[in-house]
């Protein structure tokens, strides 16, 4: 054979390429064209989707809804945490004073506590007031009448300052106050906050589990779409293989298609979450106003939106990668 040795290796075309253009393009050109080709295929895949917008939109919408659910819940939880951060200030410690503490020393103690930097305020509830309150709220008024004297102790309600609000600091304060001679019992009303945080933790985990499951759903949706697309273009794949297309060349447009589906799905998800927040924001503001709070729903922030886009495109690429790996191998010319 003329024109040098005949080899069927890719390197041959590059080594011989400089002089003998018949063997293939030059290395420089090859590298330059490789990038251009990628870019072209990238947009070619987009064009292919554009040619059937309804089908593409439906697939992207399914992906979008699947992504919107965990993303929306995540944003919702973030908002609840935001609210709770404000409620943390509601932590208070009740100091039940010993029976022999009279009103004067109770007031002394109160002033002494209020002067501490870690304490925002102290309310004094005298034995009489405590009795009135108990009578009013408990419904055991008549039972109390049967008693000869007031069984209730005086109480100092201590509100820790916002700056000394962490569980550790409150715990330390509690210990300190327990040691006071005139304090019979110091009780921290924080149990419910702890419970709420535990519930939030469960919610957070739940969101992750849901996100995992729905990610799997996105993988399957993209995988299935790509599988159908591979089957539709079976003839094209066969012809391309027959005229020397490598697997990488054939794989490329399908991978980019997966990427685009993931990206569009993520954008749809972001829009859905944002729209839902907009719909909810009015009623939430009204509710907050009823609690004298100026709380506003936080919108999707840049970090979350970025994460959403990143996971969408990654899932799209992964899904098409699996589909292509599984189904392209089966198509060989006969």
């Amino acid at each position: 054979m003329r024109g040098g040795t005949y080899r069927s290796r890719p390197a041959a075309s590059r080594e011989n390429g400089r002089g003998a253009s018949r063997a293939g393009p030059r290395l420089n050109d090859t590298l330059h064209n490789w990038g251009a080709r990628h870019l072209q295929t990238f947009f070619y895949a987009l064009g292919q989707m554009w040619r059937r917008p309804a089908a593409a939109l439906m697939t992207a919408a399914v992906i979008g809804i699947a992504l919107a659910l965990p993303a929306g819940l995540h944003v919702g939880l973030k908002n609840v945490q935001h609210v709770l951060a404000g409620w943390d200030g509601a932590t208070q410690v009740s100091l039940f004073l010993t029976a022999n503490t009279d009103e004067a020393s109770a007031t002394d103690l109160r002033n002494q506590l209020e002067a501490q930097s870690g304490i925002a305020g102290v309310d004094y509830i005298s034995r009489e007031n405590a009795l009135l309150e108990f009578r009013r709220l408990s419904g055991f008024g008549e039972a109390l009448d049967a008693l000869e004297e007031n069984p209730l102790p005086a109480v100092l309600v201590v509100r820790p300052a916002l700056s000394h609000n962490s569980p550790d600091q409150v715990e330390a304060l509690l210990k300190e106050m327990r040691a006071l001679p005139s304090v019979e019992l110091a009780q921290l009303d924080m149990q419910w906050v702890k419970r709420l945080f535990a519930l939030m933790e469960i919610g957070q985990r739940g969101v992750w589990v849901l996100a995992g499951l729905l990610s799997l759903a996105v993988l399957l949706v993209v995988g299935n779409t790509i599988r159908l697309s591979i089957q539709n273009r079976r003839d094209e794949i066969v012809v391309t293989k027959l005229i020397g297309g490598t697997d990488a060349f054939i794989r490329r447009p399908f991978l980019y298609t997966g990427f685009w589906y993931g990206l569009f799905g993520a954008i749809i998800a972001a829009v859905l979450v944002q729209a839902s927040l907009a719909v909810l924001s009015g009623p939430v503001r009204d509710l907050a106003a009823l609690y004298n709070s100026s709380f506003r729903l936080d919108a999707l922030n840049a970090a979350t939106a970025g994460l959403l886009l990143l996971s969408g495109t990654t899932l799209g690429l992964l899904g098409s990668w699996f589909a292509v790996g599984r189904h392209l191998r089966d198509i060989e010319p006969t």
């Binding site: 040795t5 005949y6 069927s8 293939g24 012809v239 027959l242 005229i243 020397g244 697997d247």
Partner: peptide, 30 residues
């Protein structure tokens, strides 16, 4: 072209085919 086809690995088949022009009865155009 002097190459024993039994020794061409599957991943090198595309490069083998690029050196051959193949024409089919049913054209196989896109």
């Amino acid at each position: 072209g002097g190459q024993n086809l039994a020794r061409v690995k599957p991943r090198h088949i595309p490069f083998h085919r690029r050196r051959i022009g193949i024409i089919f009865q049913e054209h196989r155009l896109l």
